[in-house]
């Protein structure tokens, strides 16, 4: 049984339908990448899974339990955390407070703690008392990842953690991914930057216009397959 599934997942913004029956599965210990062009529906999929958007209860399951109808604050304690697109740090909280709020109201056992996050991203320890938003983009992304890890999630969703960052910074951020995998978390990594995602993923889903257009292991398809699934036309 998969740790997380979506089955025939649909999502709407008012009259606009953004997802048309998306089926994905994440197995225990696995990392999957979800790639696709801007507007393909990747963020909508992440917002649905994390509970920011509500869906039919049975459309999403976590450890076999239907969670599609639950709100984000109900889903987090079940072991699913998200690094949202655009980082979304809390401007009135310091770096350390941004990390601490990841465990609001709960004691969580597990690998991740303030110390473990500072170990993963040492620069954050130096900046712990700065306002979160006074940091560089890459450092802010580290805070956003650390904040989500603080709840020791079974499933971690990362929505475009490379967005707007320089290549060297992206490398730094992605260097943390194997350590997160080693801590036992299962990951969904959403990227437009296909290269990084393919390197860390066991399987890849490609989305276009609210549908999954390609699915498989990174080495099972050619550049041309990806191009077709990504843009709807062959290269």
């Amino acid at each position: 049984m998969s740790l997380l599934t979506t089955t025939g997942l649909t999502a709407h913004y008012g009259d606009f339908q953004a997802l048309f029956g998306v089926d994905i599965a994440l197995n225990e210990g696995e990392t999957i990448a979800i790639i696709g062009a801007n507007g393909a529906g990747k963020t909508t999929l992440m917002r649905s899974i994390s509970g920011v958007l509500q869906n039919g209860p049975e459309m999403i399951t976590l450890s076999g339990q239907p969670i599609g109808g639950l709100s984000a604050d109900q889903i987090l304690p079940l072991g699913l955390a998200m690094v949202p697109e655009g980082r979304r740090l809390f401007p009135s909280l310091s770096v350390e407070e941004n990390l601490l709020i990841g465990t609001y109201g709960r004691k969580v056992d597990g690998y991740w703690s303030l110390e473990a996050i500072y170990d993963l991203f040492p620069i954050l320890a130096e900046r712990r008392n700065n306002p979160g938003t006074a940091l560089s983009g890459g450092q802010q992304q580290m805070v956003a990842i650390g904040r989500a890890l603080m709840s020791n999630p079974k499933v971690l969703l990362c929505d475009e953690i490379s967005l707007g960052l320089a290549p060297v910074v992206i490398k730094d951020i992605y260097a943390a991914v194997p350590k997160i995998q080693a801590s036992g978390a299962s990951l969904i990594v959403v990227e437009q930057d296909i290269g990084q995602a393919m390197k860390v993923a066991d399987r890849v889903y490609c989305m276009m216009e609210g549908r999954v257009t390609l699915e498989g292991t990174p080495d099972s398809f050619s550049r041309n397959d990806i191009h077709a699934a990504y843009f709807g036309v062959s290269a």
Binding site: G51, D73, A81
Partner: peptide, 8 residues
């Protein structure tokens, strides 16, 4: 919205 992602 982001606060609710923290379990708040």
């Amino acid at each position: 919205t982001t606060a609710s992602l923290m379990g708040i």
